[in-house]
Amino acid sequence: MNSIVSVKGLHKTFGGRPVLSNINMEVSSGEFVVIFGPNGAGKTTLIKTIATLTQPTKGIVSIEGREAHKHSVDVRRSIGLVSHDTFLYDSLTAEENLLFYGRMFGVDEELLKNRVNQLISDSGLDMRMRDRVATFSKGMKQRLSIARALIHSPCVLLLDEPYSGLDPEATEIFNNFVIRDKDIRVKIMASHNIENGFKLCTRAVIVQNGKIVFNRQKSDIGDAEDFELIYREILGF
């Protein structure tokens, strides 16, 4: 199967300190890969490097066969990124935020209006679409943040610790929203929330000290409890 996201020999150092060491990963269409690991393991750096926000020190990231850091402007059309930062402008309304990002991605103006309405409806924010984002709760902002990331119909969705600050109900709404979009061919999420992450994934990856120490299909692992045991054993706690 052809991989949509390919990471080969990826190294990243910050001020001489290695943050990622020899990361190799292939993600094919239909996969939902969740990268688990403790704080400081390198999950966010890996997501940011795949998203082209961070330059790798060594190694290659390819998205749909294009080298991401050589063709970053072009490759970004295929990527949607949801981070714990929402990338939303507080003084704009939900609708204005989505329209702005849609225009930045060059979405056709007529299609854009429909896309905005559809995404706002999917995120359950219909009644608040003309309210300023500053007045939204954390959960609402995070749902709008997904809508923002999906505005240009990307085929790769990257999620970096999207659950931070969300209560269980908001987490459930968020999960449904992520699962619902069938246009996304690949989803990669960094999380230390084992319960939520394992529920959504088709493959689980564990990163420790900047290295991939576990990479297996969900079907080969068992249930969430089994995985938690593996996780604890690998990390030694």
């Binding site: 082209t52 402008y89 507080d90 991605f105």
Partner: peptide
């Protein structure tokens, strides 16, 4: 405004 909520990263993620 760009620093708040890291909107600058949102802009950097746009194909521009």
């Amino acid at each position: 405004d760009e620093i708040k909520n890291r909107c600058i990263d949102g802009l950097r993620m746009c194909p521009v």
